[in-house]
Design a protein around this nucleic acid. Structure first.
Lengths: 219, 219
DNA sequence: ATTCATTTTAAACCTTTTTTAAAAAAATTT
DNA sequence: AAATTTTTTTAAAAAAGGTTTAAAATGAAT
């Protein structure tokens, strides 16, 4: 379910919008303070609905600041609906400017349209399959703990840390205290063990050997 | 200079818009016939401005058809400005709906905003057929991984790096650590292997031999 | 001290890559 | 057009590297 951030100080109106959009499968978080809005992490949100009539700070300024931080779609809604305001808002980085009062159906249509456009190209940040669980000294593959041993954990972490790039066997050994004493073949042994532990969760081999160069991890 | 397609039958109004946007470095082509609009090639255009009040065909239908063909940004403008019309227009695939009459400044602001959003992700650079994938130590040909071996990879990278220029056999050997020990014959062997791996994806031979001088890669 | 899990070593096995050699094809020269 | 040279392909041997198995060594926990 998509999440939207509504920046609006009119509590009653905000809750109206919240309820209306909830019925259309959009979750709305409300923020009534522009300063707090600017320190809110935006990652969870697909779109921001920004009202210009905010206490303490000019709404256009809020928009400018948001745009500095992020390319997230922004729809301004405002009772100030002179052409000059609209033009400034759009120039500043807003994607749409909806004069108040508006029909919530139109709002929803505009949100949908903008999300469609904005997401058409968005590089859906694929969630990482491998996560290092430092506390547990383990690795999670698609949220499944692999129950790696110390040696396995060190090698796996190295591969994960290198983020898909090739890591030479030498480097793998050198950077892993627990196994630096090993000879070449032992490393391959460990790789084999790690593979075996991933296998139940994936048909694909995620540890790719590059002959003569080392190993690399693929998502 | 960006080109826009204005689909509008009011000649006088269209020419007004044309002139106004020309001052802002946007070239507007005018089309007064919805049927002709639908057979016009859209590649030259960055955005379509569609008026709904067209003779012979429903404007919303035009929008629907355009959207079937292309993801080009579309702004509807119309004297029909009921919420229902707006919602339908946006639902159908339009990116914005601007009720007539409007201030041309607002039109320009909305065009800019939409172009900004729509082009934010567009890869302006003409895409190269051959891409070196350093992570995988492989080469992508039209996005297909070729699964090159180490020797093949080094030779292919050299050719790609030289960007279409001739590379002598000596240089190819010299600059590729992994194969510098080879004698003459092996290089030709490798070239042959690379060709074989490209073949499934292209009828053309992309590695051109220049007798006595070396090889060069063509897109 | 014994047990158990983990790490290390060693060996056999399997695959892929590189090399070699030679024949076929193509281009250039005579 | 024939001869010569260069390039391309084919096929097979040799080398290198990777994987897995099994067994021995280690070391911590009971």
């Amino acid at each position: 379910m998509k999440r939207l951030l509504l920046i609006e100080d009119d509590e009653e109106f905000a809750s109206l919008i919240h309820d209306f959009l909830a019925k259309r499968s959009l979750h709305v978080d409300i923020c009534d303070d522009p300063f707090r809005a600017l320190v809110t992490p935006l990652e969870p949100y697909s779109l921001i609905l920004l009202d210009l009539g905010l206490p303490g700070m000019d709404g256009l300024e809020v928009c400018r600041e948001l745009r500095k931080k992020s390319t997230i779609p922004i729809i301004i809604s405002s009772a100030r609906n002179s052409t000059a305001d609209k033009v400034t808002g759009l120039q500043i980085g807003a994607d749409d400017y909806l004069p108040k009062p508006y029909d919530p159906d139109e709002l929803y249509a505009r949100i949908s349209s903008l999300l469609r456009r904005a997401h058409a190209f968005v590089d859906e940040t694929p969630k990482k399959s491998f996560i290092v669980d430092t506390k547990a000294h383990d690795v999670l593959f698609l949220d499944h703990p692999l129950f790696l041993t110390e040696a396995e954990f060190e090698v796996a972490s190295q591969l994960i840390k290198h983020n898909g790039n090739v890591v030479s066997k030498e480097q793998l050994l050198y950077d892993s205290p627990a196994i630096s004493s090993m000879d070449g073949k032992s490393l391959e042994m460990i790789i084999s063990k790690i593979r075996a532990k991933i296998k139940p969760y994936s048909a694909q081999d995620h540890i790719i050997a590059l002959r003569g160069r080392g190993y690399r991890l693929v998502e």
